[in-house]
Design a protein around this nucleic acid. Structure first.
Lengths: 346, 346
DNA sequence: ATCGGGGCTTGACACGTTTTAATCGATGTC
DNA sequence: GACATCGATTAAAACGTGTCAAGCCCCGAT
């Protein structure tokens, strides 16, 4: 049996004793191996594996003042958009020897605040944050503690922080323009809480497209939902079918669109012939939907990678770091849910 | 401006000074508020908010020997099955005042090992683990360090640990039996690495169903794939279409099935008329697929909840804790992708 | 032979919190 | 009025690591 009844906390001291050196040397082997002679280092390394030593991160962090861990807080872990972002983050972080603590605010400001507090207690080196609110006071609180914060999927006009985002106004315009090009004159916009910047911006873009097409704001019927998932989409569609159906539906993300699509088809409507539909994010599942979903694609994985690179740059070299605001452009992906069959346009 | 140039680490001492008490009292306010007089407590609490004090988790952990954090390691964060499990975990953990560190092994043993090491360094209180390998040596290493481990979505015959799982053999049997009932005589099984217990068990169940139907093992054509996602499913389907198509396809999870479905339809095959299809996990998207996907449903959220409850019970009361092996039964969900139109059965 | 210097190693302290035992003051008892 | 009791508070000692100044040893230069 390998288990041991007597709790035997094996620390740097035990390793030192076992290798016949001082604790300081073991610490050097761990942190600045080049400073220690080859023979000694090998001896220490052998002792480490023989005793199964695992460095106590709390002690390191306590002494160093910060850990080699970054926090990633997203709006919704169940959204493939964010898991793809997380993949980019994880890849860069692990390349650079950082661990990632993943957390989700569930679009709740209170949960965001609570989770950020946990991250602050853990003394993470930095934080990638997709803020729920627009102002990012929570981010400010962290920065006051000298914890670098990079805003993720959220632009900022302020020069005191980095941000990486995709132009959601442009994306909303692309989406609505596509629907209008298909012949739609009235569009329903299924959208999450208006406090969410992503939703607000996409709406703004849609209005811009309407205006360009010579239509007024009243051509856009807003259908607010409480969450940004498929279930909420279904509920929205049900409400939508209460009144006269619009020509087209623009959903603030693909999860909503998939839910809407499902209810529309169940209700016997044809997509796109009766109602055109477009989503946002271009998640994997969209292409495999009952009617392949048109959508707006974002450089998701790169979003995560670049945000992490900016954050780590700021962590490793707080002095020489110049804050950057990166903005990507989205891309329209037309599939079957938005294009009306030729000739069926009004 | 709220930022402060001079780094001013505000610790328990500063709070104590500001409130006119000793550091020990501040600690008591934080950890055993009932032991301190009302007046004093209020004074300290005021000082805490005034100074914006945030407890240093590293120091607590160092002193206590463990943190109030648990680790959750899943196979694939991009799989909705696991994000749903994670939701259950998060809910219970936060109810009980624990934070969750989320990590993903990506089905790689090496990444599992590396991530578990990070968790060990962080001195997490316990770990929920969906192991990549079958034996769980990595779990043993943790348990040797007195870190409780609960196996998640993985049964164990060993009595020295808790586990929470769903009967995948039964699930595989349900799935294959459904396909056979639809008239299929040959079934392709699209499956991930055979080292993955989930895949192996589902295969075993499928074989059992074949046997019950009087068919031999050769009625099951295995199509191995490298990963368990939609892309891999597409590749598998492409290979599948090289030879004579089987009557039906059983995919080891829904992501694979969605990928397969997409390619089948693109190739002009009708589902289920030409080829029947069934997946596993019953993720949200399956119901909204081009052809609504039959699948095998698991009590995903409860899986996460119960595993976490077991883990925290073991953490809080290591002595009086009796290890349990919980096994849920899966449930067949029949939609359109598996049932042949009446009369089209051979 | 002495000195200087460079490469390795060591010793000791500090990080911020928790905890234990001791202290203090007040209240109640004999 | 002395003493025990009890509650509230404090002082001090850990926890395991990183760091830094100081020490050691050996070698080459003078």
């Amino acid at each position: 049996m390998s288990s041991n009844d007597t709790a035997r906390p094996v620390g740097i001291k035990q390793v030192a004793a076992h290798a016949g050196v001082s604790p300081g040397t073991v610490s050097n082997v761990l942190n600045r191996p080049e400073r220690v002679a080859d023979g000694t280092r090998e001896r220490v390394e052998r002792a480490i594996v023989e005793l199964g030593f695992v460095r106590n991160g709390s002690a390191s962090t306590l002494r160093a003042g910060h850990s080699s861990t970054i926090g990633l807080m997203v709006l919704d872990l169940a959204n493939p958009f964010f898991t793809e972002v997380a993949r980019g983050v994880e890849d860069v972080a692990s390349e650079r020897g950082y661990a990632v603590i993943l957390a989700s605010s569930g679009e709740s400001d209170e949960r965001e605040q609570r989770n950020l507090r946990v991250l602050a207690e853990q003394r993470v080196r930095g934080v990638l944050l997709t803020p729920v609110g627009d102002e990012g006071e929570n981010a400010d609180r962290l920065r006051d503690r000298d914890v670098p914060v990079v805003l993720l999927d959220h632009p900022t006009p302020r020069a005191n922080q980095c941000s990486v985002a995709v132009d959601d106004v442009a994306g909303g315009e692309l989406a609505a323009a596509e629907l209008l090009a298909g012949g739609a004159r009235t569009i329903a916009f299924v959208t999450g809480p208006p406090g969410l910047r992503q939703c607000a911006d996409r709406r703004k873009g849609a209005l811009r497209a309407l205006k360009a097409a010579g239509l007024g704001r009243d051509a856009l019927r807003e259908v607010p939902v409480a969450a940004m998932n498929a279930r909420a989409g279904q509920e929205a569609a049900a409400r939508l079918l209460d009144g006269p159906p619009p020509d087209a539906v623009f959903c603030a993300n693909d999860l909503l669109a998939l839910g809407v699509l499902r209810v529309l088809l169940q209700a016997g409507m044809r997509v796109p012939e009766d109602v055109a539909l477009i989503g946002y994010d271009d998640i994997d599942f969209s292409a495999a939907a009952a009617v392949p979903l048109s959508s707006v694609r974002q450089p998701t994985y790169r979003l995560g990678r670049i945000a992490t690179e900016l954050l780590l740059e700021e962590c490793d070299d707080a002095g020489g770091h110049a804050h950057q605001q990166v903005m990507f452009q989205p891309e329209l992906v037309v599939r079957e849910s938005s294009r009306r069959a030729p000739g069926s346009a009004r």
